[in-house]
Amino acid sequence: MKTTRRTVLGLLAGAAAVAGVPSYWIYRMKTYAGPPSDHFDGTHFFDPDGVPPKSLGDVLRWQFGSGRQRQAWPEWVPSPHADTPPPRVTGDKVRLSFVGHASWLIQTAGLNILVDPVWSDRASPLGFAGPKRHNDPGVAFDALPPIDIVLVSHGHYDHLDVATLSKLAAKFSPRVITPLGNDLTMREADNAIKAEAFDWHDRVELGSGVAVTLVPTRHWSARGLFDRNKALWASFVMETSAGKVYIVCDSGYGEGKHFRRVAEAHGPLRLAILPIGAYEPRWFMKDQHMNPQDAVKALADCGAQQALAHHNGTFQLTDEAIDAPVIALGVALDEAKIPRERFVAPKPGQVFEI
């Protein structure tokens, strides 16, 4: 294939969602400033039990190195499902609608909560290049009920989509709960976004007896070449009347410490939402993204009664085939002697209730 400037931009934009490299231009965002802690050195955040993100040289080696085996995805893979959520869900029930990739609508106790909402056509800083959708959101934007709360886990483009957040702010004006520093990205893009930033282990009351705690996760964050780890990343533990829901939007596995600590501090867990996609090649991805085998170990570590899989099948961020994560999940569950119905991989538009 002839290498053109547009091709190079597209490949680098593809790396942006998972590697924080938007393109060839120099981009710098406003970054967090605050007192040092056990995971912030005064300039950069870090995971005491993690590893630093890959270098730009590693990104280029992955994108342009010889021997790369990137599997082609079909141009369009529509989901057979589409959800029209009710205006509210009350009582001792949680209704979860899978929007796609890492985006969820969670309805409980009269609250409507979105997780990492991305309705844009591309998970990219570029409108013309980078990972594009391979299926429609499982809930059309115009079909959304009134949104009260938005949870945004970190700053990578497939999770923090300012275009979607701006549309939500204009239509619903929800509270946006996010780790430290990501609020600056949001307000810099649109001051109408009502972002509230919190640290690891902060517990935030959402109303109606629902609360969420930001917990450490094995990942990192960036949106440009010069802001790596200058904003924090997190997973969420949501307290509901139906039990606690552990929401992991992006994470490597490592030695499993993060998942066991959540079980110790927040268990028992009724449900875990765990990523299973964007994991090849392993030499590059293993420290930031779990593969299905890792996700099955994470389920065992956190001890959740039930798990739902996500982070697969919508945006091609990495090199595995579109159906590889779901196939590998089934194999890993069988090998671990865990019933397949305990860890389900929904398609966009499917609904799960507890």
Rank of each mutant, 00 (worst) to 15 (best):
V331C: 02
H134E: 05
H258F: 14
R122F: 10
E264N: 00
D199S: 13
P216M: 05
T240Q: 08
R342F: 12
K171G: 01
L299H: 10
K30Q: 12
G57W: 15
C302F: 02
P53A: 13
L308H: 01
S23M: 06
D158P: 09
N312E: 13
H159D: 10
A72C: 02
F343R: 05
G67P: 08
P78Y: 07
G313E: 07
V162H: 04
L12N: 09
V77D: 07
I338M: 13
P268M: 15
A278I: 09
K244N: 03
V351T: 12
S173Y: 05
A123E: 14
N291P: 02
V237K: 07
E239P: 00
D183A: 11
K337S: 15
A295I: 14
Q71H: 09
H311W: 00
T240A: 15
A242S: 15
G330W: 05
P36L: 01
S221Y: 06
W76M: 08
D38W: 13
G20T: 10
G256R: 05
Q63N: 01
P137D: 09
S23I: 04
P145V: 11
D158H: 15
I177R: 01
L271G: 00
P174C: 08
T3R: 05
S124N: 01
F226Q: 05
V139L: 09
T213M: 10
P74E: 10
G313C: 11
S153C: 04
F128S: 07
F128Q: 06
N135H: 13
E205S: 13
